[in-house]
Design a protein around this nucleic acid. Structure first.
Lengths: 353, 353
DNA sequence: GTGCACAGTGCAACCGTTTGCACCACCGCC
DNA sequence: GGCGGTGGTGCAAACGGTTGCACTGTGCAC
């Protein structure tokens, strides 16, 4: 290839150019920039001056190849998912990741994906081509085989949401979905509600299953029956909530006096559906949402919502990942973070009969 | 360094391992994977089988070093900025970037930053260490010197928001802020309003200046006077809008009958401030927001808002960048994208005196 | 039968760093 | 004055790919 570099656009100075100018060996320049090595003050000075004059900074890619580390962690984002903006999940998760990567001098590599299966493809691609030192995988629909496949690839990995089956080796962070939902329902029960509906979203979703479990637990503990039509999966959008109103009120005398919705968008749909039927919130019916999205505060009435610590989950995941990378191992264990119910005006005691 | 690789964790197969197994030269393996080279079907088959058996995928870093391309574009995000989540700007911009990078087989490298000056530091760091093939710079407070400094670094660059002074060489995409605001004000004038307030946000921000210019233009064209107290910069948050109500209504008889707010959060503040003074929207006063955030639809009344095409801007920027990279040049020219006024319930004719 | 084009593969230099080891000079100690 | 220790630097082999060029063999035209 001989003179491959000749005539190349944007030819930038290398460590050799600096070395030549400072009249030292390239390795000395490397040592000056990497820091951890004994260099005499005079030599250091000369090298830094030469570097300054040439506007030199060491090439990160070459460095990565040599040290076998990229100082980067990765995340795959389903960029076509409609709710991406509406939902707080990804933006907040990313903010947490970004804050921690930043403070450790790392960067965040983002890949898009178009579907669940594509998500796995993209993740495996990043892992196998070694584009990042570690990866956080945020899919709540991982199956056992996929986790195993991910595990087979070497790089450090942490899951957002706990793994499906017993996978003692894989690290994860998660929100206390089940306990949080149980507490929400217990709160509604304390207010006096006895007929409480669960409006869930995609039932294949692990998070949805956990929430439902928490709901059932609270109802059972309180000795309250659960009627089948109180549980509605709808889907994760406003219309899901809207439709749920119709489905849960087929028999008005046994209709719920309170609704728990798996996200705020569905809660918006519930509010609209209830309003159209002339039901007042919270006097006739209470509504609780999830995620505490920005709009929760601006709804009428202001929405009581379960704040899920997405940002903190991102931060914790990045922390686990980077620590493991720096220690040369794999992240281990897990972190379970608490959600917090933000009580506003959409919840109150049920109407007295 | 001799046998540096010995005993290394997560030892992965290289192109040489595959070559050995397939009994061909490493360069042949490279050619099979890079695609653009004539390889006999039999050889290709053997190589692919060997690669499969070893679970081989070419190392992206090594490839990047060799071909001098990373297949990555970068963005620096102020991750500590409070409004990051509330505002649609960054998430939507990123969604646009992600969609286009994805469809071209690129990835998006994200860096955090803590302040405006840090943002420049991070951008320069990414550029000078060659961590990405190109970068999109989303700062609306760039000064001439900074743009010059960015230009001095070689890699392809596109600005979100046009550059401050006459910088014919730098590529950018922007929203038609001035024209869009002018049209909003013209719309209010057509409804019959003659006293219209401008609630802006940070006056150092280029976008804010442009919007103000559009406002003045519309008022001037219609031959309407502008009173000084109708213009309020407040700041880019709900409280900014709330405070603006007090400041613009010191003389009730000359108070505005319509407000244009630089973002939806300020519009929320306006709505609250007006409500507290017993003013009805839109019967007494009209309000227009900006960004068409998710909550705009859920406010009471539903907010008329100027939808700014952030996602499209991100997509356009990525498109320009990647095209330039692939052609081996620098992005040129600019794209000016139109905003769109989404009319809802917060605007109407002014009250008749 | 010779010449030629071209498909297919190997060779080796190169991308820009890092780092183990060798080496040298100097210092202080006995 | 010899000698061990050490601070500072150079040497060269990695890291894992890519690619210009050389070379071989085959098919085809003349």
């Amino acid at each position: 290839m001989a003179t491959r570099n000749n005539g190349r656009r944007g030819n930038r100075p290398t460590i050799r150019d600096v070395a030549a100018r400072a009249r030292v060996h390239p390795s000395t320049v490397s040592r000056v920039f990497s820091g951890h090595a004994q260099i005499s003050p005079r030599t250091r000075q000369r090298v830094l001056e030469a570097a300054q004059a040439l506007n030199f900074r060491p090439n990160a890619i070459a460095r990565s190849l040599s040290v076998q580390r990229t100082q980067t962690i990765a995340l795959v984002v389903p960029h076509v998912f409609e709710g991406y903006f509406q939902d707080a999940f990804f933006p907040q998760l990313m903010a947490g990741l970004l804050a921690v990567t930043y403070s450790h001098g790392y960067r965040l590599l983002l890949g898009g994906c178009e579907s669940y299966s594509d998500e796995i493809v993209q993740i495996l691609d990043i892992l196998r081509t070694r584009q990042a030192d570690g990866i956080v995988v945020a899919s709540s629909r991982l199956d056992v085989d996929t986790v195993g496949e991910l595990q087979r690839q070497a790089p450090p990995l942490v899951l957002i949401g706990h793994p499906p089956a017993h996978h003692p080796d894989v690290a994860w962070v998660d929100a206390d979905n089940q306990a949080a939902t149980r507490e929400v329902v217990e709160y509604l029960i304390r207010l006096g509600h006895r007929r409480i509906a669960y409006v869930g979203g995609d039932p294949d979703n692990t998070v949805v299953k956990e929430r439902l479990e928490g709901y059932r637990e609270a109802m059972a503990r309180a000795g309250l029956p659960v009627e089948a039509h109180w549980i509605d999966y709808g889907y994760f959008a406003e219309d899901g909530g809207y439709q749920a109103v119709a489905r849960t009120r087929v028999k008005p005398e046994r209709a719920p006096t309170a609704y728990y919705a798996g996200n705020d968008l569905m809660a918006v749909g519930l509010l609209r559906g209830l309003r159209e039927r002339g039901l007042r919130v919270p006097q006739d019916v209470s509504v609780v949402g999830t995620n505490d999205s920005p709009e929760a505060r601006h709804l009428t009435p202001e929405l009581t919502s379960l704040r899920v610590p997405y940002r903190e989950m991102g931060a914790a995941a990045a922390e686990m990942l980077i620590q493991a990378i720096q220690e040369g191992g794999r992240p281990r264990g897990h972190r379970l973070l608490s959600s917090k119910l933000v009580i506003r005006a959409s919840t109150g005691p049920p109407p007295r009969r």
